[in-house]
Amino acid sequence: MQIYVCVKHVPDSVAHITIVDKNHIDENLTFLLNPYDEHAVTEAVRIKDNLPGTEIIAVCLGKDDAEKTLRSALAMGADRAILIVSDGNHDSIETAKALKAGIEQDGKPGLIFTGKESIDAEGMQIMFRIGALWDFPVATNVVKLDIETGRAVVDCELSGGTANIYELSLPCVIGAGRGLNTPRYPTFPDIVKSKKKLVKKIAFIDLNIKISTASMSIVELEPLGQTRKPKEITGDAGEVAKKIVKILKDEAKVI
């Protein structure tokens, strides 16, 4: 079986984001593998461990330097990678089409993984768009996955700790959630080995993606400024508790 794992090259979550030209960020910062996509790669490796003959291919749409993220996926256990190279900005509709085209050109997916969300765009939708393009069933925020012959049984986490359990026929698209596994961080030999693995590059324009009449484009980015003006609540524990109650009652009006 071929498992394709979509991985995105995203700014490190601790990095300070500087906005330039109104709607871009200064990309002079550390980029890495989207955290949820680490769970996706880890799960693919787990499946491969039980299903010899499985091939894991990491796929990314990004600029040339996104190769770094693909190398991380290779170090975590992917066998080879595809980088769909583009300098442009693509919305989720185009991204999904490009990922599909790139995968379709390469092989025959038995299973496709994504993360449940990219931490930069926070789109929460690529998995569904890829699924719809192929007419494959989709589940997202998957925290438990069992692959059986021809089907996948998944737990999709809901807030409050409960889950929906779905059965999907293969091939399907799985959006990995954080509870799915603990990412397996590569050892030094893994990293050395990954350097020799193949990263195939395809130009986005060569995929001839049809332009959609539906689109999403960022017109402005603003820093989420700190607007709170902290006031201190003082006194001994009893007094502080009383003052908090008063704030909850009179100001926040929640009690």
Binding site: D120, A214, M216
Partner: peptide, 20 residues
Amino acid sequence: LVKTSQYSGKTIATIKLTGD
């Protein structure tokens, strides 16, 4: 036009949508 957060909540993005 819609506003949402991006970059782990560090920015507010104003996004233009087209479509039916």
